[in-house]
Write a protein that binds this DNA or RNA. Structure first.
Length: 593
DNA sequence: GCCGTTTTCGGCCCGACTGTTTTCAGTCG
């Protein structure tokens, strides 16, 4: 019974990558060859960010075509998908106790420490590690002292406080901006010559592990001091001559590095990451006879330049150019093929905020919005848009008052009147009539077809029953996509980052059907949604689907969220032609069903 | 375990900071 249950479990790309990560962790603790566990880590990352469903790729026999997946791991994945496990995994699970594996989650406790606790002190879980540290039993080991015990206890405390490790970008970005401003304000003018938020925030990843700041200053000590004493600081993790790490309330870490002006290009490149991207760039440098670190290129002697010769770059682009690479937008730096594209000068020309001509999903006071139709229209005009679709919730959504046919007719009068005024005033802006129509549990819609038929834009969204079984929710979603009146599939997976997992949707099948039916797929730009995410959005455009990037604004300020959607699209390699709301209104409307 | 503009074998990015040490290992990014 349980064996059957395991065998029929559907493994998502995330599930598979988690298993591979666990495999890497166990290999590390077991003391395996370091390149072996790196191989599993790389494979995990490759699967996590691969745009196709791993089950489909495996069925096509294409696993080994994914960079980082070779013969061995491809076989392991096949076994995993078929039977729920694979040989090497079972062997290590027998060898490494689950509690020992958990100890690896403790900050500042790595595989070497975990292994010694386990092997030399017979510590099998976090609770007994804590007890041993408190009883001062760890200092008996060679290489460990009182500080080590303190560090372990602090780490355990930190782990308990830390919710799930990563902070949604919608929270992290404002916080980083606040810290940046506070740091500048805390120092005499001119002390900071230049400051940039680097790391995953500069890459606009949907969740952030820690905040990274890079600074040019001739007085690093003063900058360090100011950083350590910011009011937001709860603890100083470490502080040296060029680097300081602090802990903020809520467990978020922030790192600061101060460099000289001539190091800026290499330093910004290094601190922006991702690690995978940096390794790929450093490998390119090596082939050309240079070693790259966060300061400069140094000739290795294997190229034309004399060994030890250094090259400095005040700008990041100059560094890329020196290595014969096109400058790679930070959003693309995830080692998903961008280094290869940069070397052959085939990077896509990414969609920009300025390409957006209008919006196709936003709310007003007719449903749960905070601003009137006229106010939203004014805000849209102020942003330079030439059209904006009012898509309030339809009836059928329990948590909020939705509009019915009658209210929709009333709203239409308001829209017509406003549009007449724009026309009379010679204003190049139009409101469009739309709806975010509720998808009921059986896949039927909250309003009848004849009501939908009158509208310019229909967004179909699922807000309930998101925990339905894979087949059920997929079929429900396909029903929406196939409806001739639904132009756009809204926030397809329904996830709320850090709060609600995505629906167990067969996204591949949904996207294929969107392509067949000409249904546009939304990138919902709200930073707690970002749905589709970067990986699925990339798959969508690979297939040839069209996208709409929508702020889903519920207030005039909500339109600001568009930047998160643009960044997500950029992370998905999306170009302006892939996005229907980069089109002028007439062309855009013609592109809808 | 993966990979190849020289390789199917022999490599696999690079440095800051800490703690326990007299020169380095561990962790992190």
């Amino acid at each position: 019974m349980s064996k059957t249950a395991v065998a029929t479990k559907h493994f998502t790309n995330r599930d598979v990558s988690e298993v591979l990560d666990q495999m890497a962790d166990m290999l590390q603790i077991a003391g395996a060859n370091r390149f072996r566990f790196i191989a599993f880590q790389n494979a995990a990352e490759a699967i996590r960010t691969h745009s196709r469903d791993v089950n489909d790729v495996a069925a096509d026999g294409g696993l080994q075509e994914i960079p980082g997946i070779g013969k061995g791991i491809a076989q392991d994945i096949h076994d995993l998908l078929e039977s729920g496990t694979f040989e090497g995994l079972e062997a290590l699970r027998k060898e490494v106790p689950a509690g020992v594996l958990e100890m690896l989650q403790i900050p500042d406790v790595g595989p070497k420490t975990v292994r010694r606790m386990w092997q030399e002190l017979d510590i099998l879980d976090i609770a007994s590690l804590k007890a041993a540290a408190e009883a001062e039993q760890i200092r008996v080991l060679k290489g460990f002292g009182t500080k080590s015990e303190e560090k372990i206890l602090k780490g355990i405390e930190l782990l308990a406080k830390r919710a799930d490790g990563r902070t949604p970008i919608g929270k992290a970005r404002p916080l980083a901006e606040e810290i940046k401003a506070a740091l500048i304000a805390a120092l005499p003018s001119g002390t900071i010559e230049r400051i940039e938020i680097a790391g995953s925030l500069r890459r606009w990843r949907e969740t952030i592990g820690d905040l990274d700041f890079l600074v040019i200053s001739e007085d690093p000590a003063a900058v360090m001091d100011a950083f350590r004493t910011l009011p937001l600081v709860v603890d100083v993790i470490g502080s040296g001559e060029t680097k300081t790490s602090i802990l903020l309330g809520g467990g978020l870490q922030a790192d600061l590095r101060v460099v000289a002006k001539k190091h800026w290009g290499a330093a910004l490149q290094y601190f922006t990451g991702s690690q995978g991207h940096n390794i790929a760039v450093r490998e390119i440098a090596q082939k050309q006879g240079w070693s790259l670190n966060e300061y400069c290129l140094t000739a290795t002697g294997s190229g034309k330049a004399a060994e030890g010769e250094e090259r400095f770059f005040e700008e990041e682009a100059a560094l890329y150019a020196f290595l014969n690479l096109a400058w790679v937008p930070p959003e693309m730096r995830e080692n998903r093929g961008e280094v290869k594209a940069a070397s052959s000068d085939t990077l896509p020309s990414l969609v920009q905020l300025t390409d957006i001509r209008g919006e196709l999903h936003g709310h007003s006071t007719y449903s749960d919005g905070a601003a009137s139709v006229a106010e939203m229209a004014a805000a849209a005009q102020a942003r330079g848009y030439s059209y904006w679709a009012i898509c309030d919730h339809s009836v059928g959504l329990g948590v909020t008052d939705g509009v019915d046919a009658e209210q929709l007719a009333k709203q239409a009068e308001e829209i017509v009147a406003l549009n007449q005024k724009y026309e009379a005033d010679g204003v190049e802006f139009r409101l469009l009539r739309g709806i975010e129509v509720e998808v009921l549990a059986d896949g039927t819609l909250g309003l009848p077809d004849e009501v939908l038929a009158e509208l310019d834009v229909v967004v179909g969204s699922i807000h309930s029953g998101q925990r339905q079984a894979r087949e059920v929710i997929t079929e429900r979603c396909l029903k929406v996509v196939r409806n001739p009146h639904v132009d756009i599939l809204g926030h397809p997976t329904g996830r709320i980052i850090g709060k609600r997992a995505p629906s167990d949707l067969d996204v591949e099948q949904v996207l294929q059907t969107c392509l067949e039916t000409g249904t546009v797929v939304e990138i919902n730009a709200h930073p707690s949604r970002l749905d589709l995410n970067d990986v699925y959005a990339r798959r969508a455009i690979e297939l040839g689907c069209k996208l709409a990037i929508s702020s889903d604004a519920h207030s005039t300020d909500g339109m600001e969220m568009m930047q998160y959607g643009i960044a997500t699209a950029q992370r998905a390699w999306v170009q302006p032609a892939d996005v229907i709301n980069t089109l002028p209104m007439k062309e855009m409307l013609a592109a809808l069903k």
